[in-house]
Design a protein around this nucleic acid. Structure first.
Lengths: 196, 196
DNA sequence: CACTACATGTAACTAGTTACATGATTCG
DNA sequence: CGAATCATGTAACTAGTTACATGTAGTG
């Protein structure tokens, strides 16, 4: 269950409440790993029981409490070990490729429209990933700043580059997929003269 | 649940038993959609109850029966409708990107090794997808031949190109990801002189 | 007769989705 | 005082994973 690793990775930058983490993973900024609110709270409690994180209760007003979680040494070990362990590839299961696989049975115009929406999504995802990559390279994002504040300044550039590279990958894949879809649109409607 | 659509898509080419479908989706040829045996049999029964497929019991020897499923008209409608319906993008949840996001906390050599295995996997996946794409273009694969046998010969070339294009996409994404990982390896170990 | 392929299932589990539910605090 | 935001949960469900379980038929 990689949600645990995702949570550890974020909490390593800065201790946060469940609510903060929900904003991070449920909202638009759940960049590399998305998760709904209903998954996060139970996971946090299981992680606390497992000793990976420690919760600290803070008073916010007379009646409202929030629990701020931070990564324990055991949690850091757990994360580091996972990080350095090659994983087996997840099964390929891509809805849009599955659709495209049978586009010969579909109305070409409707199939084009399916790809059109896909292209818009992928282009948008690529732009957002590239924008975030650039912000990381400039060390402008709040979370990266918090991370770097506890690291040797000599490492800052390398860390920023490594983080940025992930979003570069996200963008590159999205661009590749968008281009694939554009080629598909051409194939769908291409009226080529029968070959000799 | 797209497994249903995947099953309909395969059964459209040729009626098959659960066992045949298990070979197709569980084994190495589960190209675009992978699924384990334990998921396929129950799904087939649910689809039969829903009227999407019809099972025909065949005797294989005195005591062994197999059920051969074929797509019903309702199943074909269901598939076609889904095919022409744009889907919302699945949440991004990529383990290797999540690992890479925190490679600054890992031993560079171990992180390199994680990427190395990933590169080998992606290159292999790309090669296999490209080989399959080529077989499809030559109309050499058994399933495509069965499909084409019930289609107007004038359509054959277009159908083969559309199917092949899906595997082209699979390959392109795998190549992109492999290249990303290679760039990551370079970043991990790059000893650059501090900039002026 | 042993081995492989054929053929079909179940049980227990983990992960993820969708929807509902409740109340506190802050700001305008 | 109303709205947005803070804050935390639960219930019911679907999808997917891992492992176990059973027996038949064909081939050498």
């Amino acid at each position: 269950m990689s949600l645990q690793h995702a949570l550890l990775g974020v909490l390593e930058a800065r201790p946060m409440s469940g609510y903060d983490l929900v904003q991070f993973f449920d909202g638009s900024s759940g960049w590399v790993w998305e998760a709904p609110q209903s998954q996060i709270y139970p996971t946090l409690r299981r992680m606390e029981q497992a000793g990976l994180i420690a919760g600290d209760d803070e008073q916010r007003g007379p009646r409202l409490t929030r629990t701020v979680y931070s990564v324990t040494d055991a949690g850091l070990d757990h994360l580091r070990t996972w990080l350095e362990t090659p994983g087996k590839p997840p099964p390929t299961r891509d809805p849009v490729l599955l659709q495209a696989l049978h586009f010969d049975m579909a109305d070409p115009e409707r199939a084009r429209a399916v790809l059109e929406q896909f292209i818009v999504e992928q282009d948008k995802a690529a732009e957002e990933a590239e924008a975030h990559r650039d912000r990381l390279l400039l060390k402008e994002t709040p979370l990266l700043r918090e991370r770097l504040s506890r690291r040797d300044p000599g490492e800052h550039e390398r860390i920023a580059r490594l983080k940025a590279h992930v979003f570069d990958g996200l963008a590159a894949v999205a661009r590749t997929r968008a281009q694939w879809a554009r080629d598909g649109q051409r194939l769908l409607t291409d009226e080529r003269p029968p070959e000799a």
